[in-house]
Simulated scan of single mutants.
Amino acid sequence: MSDVDGLLTHLPEDPYPLYDVLRNKGRVLWLDGAQRWLVTGHEEALAVLRHPRMSSDRTRWDGYRPAPGYDRSAGMFTMDPPGHTRLRGLVQRAFTARVVEGLRPRIQQLVTEFLDAAEKRGEIDLIADFAGPLPAIVLAELLGIPSEGQLRYRRWATTMMGAIDPVSHATSSEQAAAGQRADDELTAYLGEIIALRRRDPRPDLISALLAAEESGQRLTGIELLEMCILLTVAGLETSVNLIGNGVGALLAHPAQLARLRDEPELLNSAIEELLRYDAPIQLSGRVPTEDIEIDGQTLRKGQMVGVVLGAANRDERAFTDPHELDLGRSPNNHVAFGRGIHFCLGAPLARIEGATAIGELVRRFPGLRPAGKPQRRTNPHVRGFTSLPVALR
């Protein structure tokens, strides 16, 4: 089981064959070495993610210890009701579908500008030159960060992304230290922006969060600051990896790439399939607050349960030919954005960014192809590229 235990410290370049091995051993499987459960079946993953007695609060885990040097485990994404209900209600009021849809023209403008610059060069690193900066700029502008601060904002957020590992604690001490410095600097900077918006509200998300009310309540100063940081990190992880993994999958499947080019009406379906096929977030943690039985196994109160979203999305019981990329797949009940009360708040924004970025890239560059060896991240919690060189002509 050493290879399986290793999933919690180092994600292989292609983890899906190992996920199949795991699922064949048990869809809800106890790992003695890691002292936790792994859930790899689709139906079982839904049961855990939707269960009202499955907590997202890592401190409820009997084996909990803060990550060395850097622990971003507080905030709405690791809270349970009623605190989570209150905070999410406040944020949703300021993060409406209308607000997200209103960002579409700006996203299109940014995509056009990035691809215009890329076309002149003929070759780009998809992550550094496109998938990375695009959602960072969108989030910065959404929050209300002025243009002169956006480069630092992107640098801080990227550093924090590389240091966060809330389930396995596989982050190195160097990464943890860098993440803590970036967190401190971003926290101080956002504190300044929040103070300015209290005095002078603008049409941005920070001002909207300051004004948001739900049942007569508001976000406290600490809650608002934490919310801005968590939206930053979670928003970037999802969108950057959706674009990177999606393009990587299309390059590995030329017939499907050609299909999308010939049938642009498949774009929305394609985004859902790319999310299923290579999910941006691979591992999500829960802790039972009482003994719970799933698939004949008793998950004890206080034990860690790792829901392997990437494995659930390749479950043959839920998807026909699950290892095939089929851009027209329907239905497609993937769990790439989670499920239940912690369903990804930024899913609509990620979908718009992913569809615009991938759709335009495919439409504009019929010669799109790999241009060098890609580099994968190895964090077990997320799946993405650190570098993906592509040729455009």
Rank of each mutant, 00 (worst) to 15 (best):
I193K: 03
R152N: 15
I127M: 07
L126Q: 05
G132Q: 04
T158Q: 14
P146I: 07
L190Y: 06
S147Q: 14
P201G: 02
T159E: 10
E123D: 09
R154N: 11
R154E: 12
P166E: 04
E123R: 15
Y189I: 11
D200F: 05
D125R: 06
S168L: 04
R152G: 15
I124S: 12
I194N: 12
Q175G: 01
E123W: 09
R199T: 15
P146V: 03
L115K: 02
E174P: 11
L115W: 07
L143G: 02
S147W: 13
F130E: 13
W156G: 02
D200M: 08
K120W: 00
V167C: 06
H169K: 06
L134A: 08
D184L: 05
R197M: 07
G132T: 03
R152F: 15
S173Y: 11
P201N: 01
I145F: 13
D200I: 05
A170I: 01
E185G: 00
R181T: 11
E174L: 12
V167D: 01
R181Q: 11
E192A: 14
A117R: 05
G122T: 07
A118T: 10
G191L: 06
A177Y: 11
P166K: 02
I124E: 11
R202S: 09
E148P: 06
M160Q: 07
A136W: 03
A140P: 03
I137D: 13
R154T: 14
G149S: 15
D184K: 00
A118D: 10
A170H: 00
D183Y: 15
L190C: 08
G144R: 05
P201T: 02
R154L: 12
R181E: 14
H169G: 07
A176R: 04
I137N: 10
D116G: 10
Q175R: 06
G149L: 15
T187L: 05
G132A: 06
S168F: 00
E141G: 09
P135A: 07
A140I: 05
L139S: 08
R152P: 14
R152I: 14
D165C: 02
D125L: 10
T187C: 10
S173M: 14
H169D: 04
P133V: 09
A136D: 05
E148C: 13
Y153D: 05
M161W: 01
E192G: 14
A178L: 15
Q175M: 04
L142M: 08
I194E: 09
M160D: 12
A131V: 03
Q180A: 11
S173F: 13
S173A: 15
M160I: 11
E119L: 02
P135L: 05
E141N: 04
L139Q: 09
G179P: 06
P135C: 04
L186V: 07
R197Q: 02
E192T: 15
I164K: 00
D183I: 02
W156T: 10
T158C: 08
L186I: 10
G132P: 03
E119D: 04
E185R: 04
V167R: 02
R198L: 12
Q150F: 12
L139E: 11
I145R: 10
M160H: 07
